[in-house]
């Protein structure tokens, strides 16, 4: 079975107001060849906004790697790093 890359977009209020809202159509922006290898999920507050050391909202988890001040391009870039590792 193919293992998909999990992308969790924090939809806690802090993340959402600071741009998480714009990440909700991330799936549409993924390159078509990787779309099926990625699973995009909205997550309730992941808690990273509580500690300044993680940087600024919005936060996205690509597998277990944190992307802060996330935007569509940053997230796709991170996803692409994982794409090659996915075992078909």
């Amino acid at each position: 079975m193919k293992k998909k890359i999990t992308v969790q977009i924090c939809t806690g209020t802090n993340c959402y107001v600071f741009g998480g809202a714009n990440l909700l159509d991330l799936e549409k922006n993924l390159p078509s060849e990787v779309k099926e290898k990625v699973e995009v999920k909205g997550a309730t507050c992941l808690g990273f906004c509580k500690d300044k050391k993680y940087g600024k909202a919005p936060f996205v988890l690509v597998e277990d790697e944190l992307v802060s001040e996330a935007d569509v391009h940053k997230v796709i870039k991170k996803v692409m790093q994982y794409v090659d590792k996915v075992v078909d």
Partner: peptide
């Protein structure tokens, strides 16, 4: 709307919780 959202954050309110 954006002011309301920022007021939530200022008070540490997470809408979903």
């Amino acid at each position: 709307f954006e002011e309301l959202g920022c007021m939530f954050i200022a008070k540490g309110i997470d809408v979903d919780s």
